[in-house]
Amino acid sequence: MTRTQGERLAALAILLFSLGYFVLAFGIKAPPSSDDSPFSARSFPLMLGPLGMALSLVLLVRPPEGAPIGAAGFSWGRALGLVGLMVFYALAINRLGFVVTSALFLAGGFWALGERRPMVLALVALGVSLGFWTMFSLLDVKLDWGVFERIWS
């Protein structure tokens, strides 16, 4: 994908976003007896939608020049690994609890970015998550242990 194609794609996406925003603005309910207010909950969105559409249209028609994005040198695996781990975090936090999820996330993150020393992986990940848990507990913020809490009790 060239830079210009990328620019066009982004502009098109924002154009569609603005269009959707504009169309949905008509669906905003007007509460009763607000006819005395000249500017309703709908008015501002109705102004923003066309503004967004106009600006993104300019970018679509005349995509700005720029250096190539340089996708060749990108390590997609590392980036996707981190995003995947975040998804794991969101899935696991309520099930495995704070400490275990955090330790797994951190160890996985270090590994994905090239750290291979087992001691570093284990100690830093566990240390940080336990450290945070302790500090938050001292500050009266309750972070639970998920399923482990139920197993213990």
Binding site: L82, L85, M86, S102, F105, L106, G108, G109, F110, A112, L113, E115, V120, V124, V128
Partner: peptide, 8 residues
């Protein structure tokens, strides 16, 4: 080490 910590 830093990048995962920031994400965390």
């Amino acid at each position: 080490i830093l990048s995962p910590l920031i994400a965390f």
